[in-house]
Design a protein around this nucleic acid. Structure first.
Length: 978
DNA sequence: TTTGATCCTG
DNA sequence: CAGGATCAAA
């Protein structure tokens, strides 16, 4: 991967350079000024601010955006998909069990249904199959082999096909069966040439011609799994076919397999299940038809042969009776020394119209059938259509039945019937499967093995229905037999029928397997989530209770126009999630949420949110211990949604990663591996929680703060450049919340940098959900109030926690190994959260904290770019607020204080911690404050007139980075960000 | 010259 | 957020 990506870069780079130069030239010519630093400063800010101020936004306490009630439809499915796709190993192991069950079920069903068909079968189903098989034994029980064979496919599909190569390398037992498939039957030229070369005899030539015709007629079974190690053999056996296959499908199995894999992957993502099913159905249908046609054709040929043989008194030595494939080679030579028997097409009476022949044959068959039924050992009396099929009968039929024709005819007739029935069955099953599939989940994933799809794709000129390797093989064998050896026995036909049956069965099995598997996964995941949700719910409930209590003391924030909460918005039909535990979700009320933040401080002052509020100013002095915002678990929402099975999509709250995801597709050169994984997609779909803010029905009365604060401090001017302009919207709950920058005149000194290791905690809900988190870590969290626990043990997480502490280790927690080089939206979220600690992380640090990423030049650059973007946003905010403060007459930087509930803080939190996945580390607040002051001073001092006046600030700020908590390295952390 | 960071734009 | 341009430090 890396190599390819790297290569991809080279081109772009050169282009870049060219462009750059060009641009540079243009700029110079135009005398275009490079930067207009002052733009922001001088323009617009003041006016906008004024407007806002007049608007009187009072600080609503931080309204919890959300979180509650946010349902993330699709979450469960996504997760499931993730499970399937992301955890290859697990899947691999799981797959079988699920598959087996499905398999069994399917088999049972089919067997019951097929009993009637089976009854028909004369015995030797194997004869034909054996001709080309390397491992005839495998075929004895068609279903088994097939299933096995199919499984790899399924796995591949599920796993994203990376494993395709592996499967190829180590061909499954059934592989031999697949072999024939590789060789598309339609390569007349080659075949002819070969045939002629090897067997110049007229007969051969004739046969070749026939073969030609036949091959054209029959859709060539697409080469199933390229994983045929027996290339040589195959070549030996079917040179032409092989060639054809090579040409058409790409010479290398690997390549073809790859293609298949990729395609299937794509299909999974794009093609709706139903469509897929339909396609498959059609394919099967056509396959059946094709086979029928082929059968007819073969009948013709057979007739011809018989006639001729009768005339010539030719003895047929080997009817392909040999049960060994290998044998085939040997046998063939005997009969047709010069030419590879298998490849020699059966002679066809070109003169006789197929239809007529068929009709004639039908008549003959019916007539003779009865006559010989009794005589024929394998044909029970009721033969006509109801003979029990003995799938595993030994190839006894080598014996040439006295009346080959009849046998053949019978078999043919039966085959046709069976085919029809099977087809009907298949169709019915398909429908069922489709329905089931739909109901079970909306995942686009393509359940069945790609057995079929690849074939379809690879089909040659004649659209051919997908055929399994076994089927193809048998057909091939059949053809070979008829061609080279001569008479096709009824057994052969039956074998064919059986193959067909098993093939269908297999495909169904596969389908069912996948469905079942998915179902199982889903169940499992849901269960898991339920647990987490329950725990989370409890915790949440506690928090809420506390918050409620506190709320009583506090007055609601000023109004915010109702903001449709993600869930509330019409899109979300979601039921209100009562907590599963019976814990009602209290939320939706931002007030509550806001209260939750600072439950700890005794006099509601716990939070010096508004420093200036004056109130008990001292409160301000003490740095708010905990994060600024409460952390309502959006996770809960998702959990619940999953639990409730809400998969509806909700309004995407953010598209953060959206771009990431999207870009990938349009990328011209592989930018960072932009390939979107299903997981990513699902995440994106489920991610948005609309604006989390819960709606605020009524506008609360102004803040009760003693200081009469309600300072319109937050008079930010809507910055057009802001991505989240909503934040500034007067209608936005965020806007005007209690006070942007809190300026407390008596600002005591809180400039001292906070503790080195900011104790940031995950929201309790998150923690609860994180089973895997190190026990120690968990313990801490639970022990302390969820919100501030860490404060008391600042160090425990990063340094001292024996379990979680794995400093300088890339694989702190479960030995995470880089699995992908794709940065997903989740990674973006994580990166944003990390920004609370580090503004200038080195790439080395970043790599350490993203152990699951296989870094390369591209994604490293991307990650770095993210932080660059984060900083950009951050500094823009800082500058904006600093200017605002200045315009408001603030005299000294020291008067600038950033309160937990300040607008600035809110904005930042919204940007970096949109879903309040974590508690904002106190240190961050400090850093923000410092940054703000730096900007304030600079602007105040007129430094902003200088070209790079910000640089010095950056420098200062860059020194304020703190170590990122170790738990960020945990794979579980990422998972919790859902 | 290369690399890294910022600025600018979409 | 990503791509491109530009500057500046290495």
């Amino acid at each position: 991967m890396m190599s390819s990506e790297e290569e991809a870069d080279s081109a772009p780079y050169s282009d870049k350079l060219l462009k750059k130069q060009k641009r540079a030239r243009q700029r110079v010519d135009a005398g275009e000024p490079r930067n207009s630093y002052s733009t922001l400063a001088t323009n617009g800010l003041a006016p906008a601010r004024a407007a806002h101020m007049s608007g009187g936004l009072y600080g609503a306490i931080f309204e919890g955006r959300q979180h509650f009630g946010i349902f993330r439809p699709g979450y469960a499915p996504a997760d499931m998909l993730n499970e399937l796709l992301g955890r290859a190993p697990a899947d691999a192991s799981d797959e079988p069990s699920g598959g087996d069950i499905a398999h069994r079920v399917l088999r049972d069903i089919l067997q019951n249904r097929n009993k009637e068909f089976l009854r028909l079968s004369p015995d030797n189903n194997n004869v034909l199959a054996n001709n080309n098989n390397d491992e005839p034994k495998e075929k004895r029980s068609p279903e088994r082999p097939v299933s096995r064979e199919s499984r790899p496919d399924l796995d591949d599909a599920l796993l994203g096909l990376d494993s395709a190569g592996d499967s190829r390398t180590s061909p499954p037992p059934a592989q031999s069966a697949a072999e024939p498939l590789l060789a598309p039957k339609s390569e007349p030229e080659d075949r002819d040439s070969d045939a002629q070369r090897s067997s110049p005899r007229p007969l051969d030539v004739k046969r070749a011609r026939v073969e030609n015709i036949v091959s054209t007629m029959r859709a060539s079974p697409a080469p199933q799994q390229p994983q045929v190690n027996g290339c040589k053999k195959r070549k030996l056996y079917h040179p032409q076919q092989h060639d054809g296959a090579a040409e058409r499908y790409g010479t290398s199995h690997g390549s073809s397999a790859q293609t298949v894999s990729d395609d299937s992957e794509d299909d999974n993502e794009r093609q709706p299940p139903i469509q897929q099913k339909l396609v498959e159905k059609n394919a099967l249908k056509s396959q059946l038809r094709t086979m029928q046609e082929q059968l007819a054709e073969m009948q013709e040929k057979y007739m011809q042969l018989c006639n001729r043989m009768g005339q010539e008194s030719e003895t047929i030595e080997n009817d392909g009776a040999s049960s060994d494939v290998e044998q085939n080679d040997e046998t063939v030579p005997k009969s047709e020394p010069a030419s590879p028997a298998k490849e020699v097409p059966p002679p066809i009476p070109s003169s006789a119209p197929p239809n007529m022949l068929s009709q004639v044959m039908s008549k003959m068959m019916s007539a003779k059938m009865h006559a010989h039924a009794a005589a024929h050992p394998h044909l029970p009396p009721g033969f006509n259509g109801t003979l029990p099929m003995l799938p595993h009968l030994p190839p006894t039929d080598h014996i040439h039945p006295p009346h080959p024709h009849q046998h053949l005819n019978n078999a043919a007739a039966m085959y046709l019937n069976v085919s029809q029935k099977l087809f009907l069955e298949q169709e019915a099953r398909m429908k069922e499967a489709v329905e089931q599939h739909q109901q079970q989940n909306n995942q686009q994933q393509r359940p069945q093995s790609n057995q079929h799809s690849p074939q379809q794709r690879q089909m040659g000129p004649t659209p051919k229905p997908p055929m399994s390797s076994e089927l193809a093989e048998r057909l091939d064998a059949l053809r070979s037999n008829s061609g080279s050896v001569g008479p096709v026995t009824g057994a052969d036909l039956e074998g064919l029928a059986e193959v067909l049956k098993s093939e269908i069965t297999a495909s169904l099995a596969t389908l069912i397997d996948s469905i079942v598997t998915r179902f199982v996964h889903q169940r499992r995941i849901i269960g898991k989530q339920s647990e987490a949700a329950a725990a989370a719910a409890e915790q949440l409930n506690k928090d809420l209770m506390r918050a409620t209590r506190m709320l009583e003391r506090k007055s609601p924030t000023p109004k915010m126009p109702e903001r449709p909460s993600g869930q509330m918005s019409g899109n979300n039909p979601v039921h209100h999630p009562g907590a599963p535990n019976g814990v009602p979700f209290i939320t939706h009320n931002p007030m509550l949420m806001s209260q939750m933040n600072g439950p700890r401080a005794p006099g509601g002052a716990a939070f010096p949110l508004h420093a200036e509020a004056g109130g008990p100013g001292h409160g301000a002095q003490v740095r708010p211990p905990t994060g600024m915002f409460q952390t309502p678990p959006k996770t809960l929402g998702s959990l619940y949604s999953a639990m409730n099975g809400h998969f509806e999509r909700e309004n995407p709250e953010q598209n953060e990663a959206l771009s990431l995801v999207v870009t990938p597709k349009k990328k011209r050169h592989k930018v960072t591996d932009t390939r979107i994984t299903p997981r990513t997609v699902s995440r994106i779909l489920g991610e948005g929680v609309g604006t989390p803010e819960t709606k605020f029905p009524e506008s609360p009365s102004p803040r009760p703060y003693p200081g009469g604060m309600a300072l319109p401090t937050s008079v930010a001017i809507p910055n057009p450049s802001l991505h989240e302009s909503q934040v500034f919207s007067p209608y936005s709950p965020f806007f005007g919340a209690g006070g942007g920058l809190a300026r407390s005149p008596p600002a005591p000194e809180r400039d001292s940098p906070p503790l080195p290791h900011a104790p940031v905690l995950l929201h309790p809900a998150l923690m609860a959900a994180a089973h895997h988190a190190s026990p120690d870590y968990m313990r801490h969290h639970h022990a302390h109030a969820p919100l501030h626990a860490a404060q008391h043990h600042p160090q425990h997480m990063d340094v001292q926690d024996p379990h979680s502490d794995c400093n300088s280790t890339d694989l702190p927690y479960d030995g995470v190994q880089p699995t992908s080089s794709t940065l997903t939206p989740m990674h973006l979220r994580k990166a944003k959260l990390m920004f609370f600690w580090v503004r200038y992380p080195s790439s080395a640090v970043l790599k350490m904290y993203f152990p699951d990423i296989k870094f390369n030049k591209n994604n490293t650059a991307q990650l770095v770019k993210w932080f660059s973007n984060f900083r950009e946003f951050y500094y823009i905010q800082m500058e904006k607020y600093a200017r605002q403060a200045i315009s408001e007459g603030l005299k000294t930087a020291e008067d600038l204080h950033v309160a937990g509930d300040s607008e600035l803080y809110r904005v930042l939190n919204l940007h970096y911690n949109r879903n309040n996945h974590i508690e904002v580390p106190p240190n961050f607040r400090y850093v923000v404050e410092q940054t703000l002051r730096e900007f304030f001073r600079a602007i105040q001092g007129g430094k902003d007139a200088e070209q790079s006046w910000k640089k010095s600030i950056y420098k200062v700020i860059s020194r304020l980075d703190d170590p990122v908590p170790e738990y960020f390295k945990s794979p579980n952390f990422l998972e919790q960000l859902e």
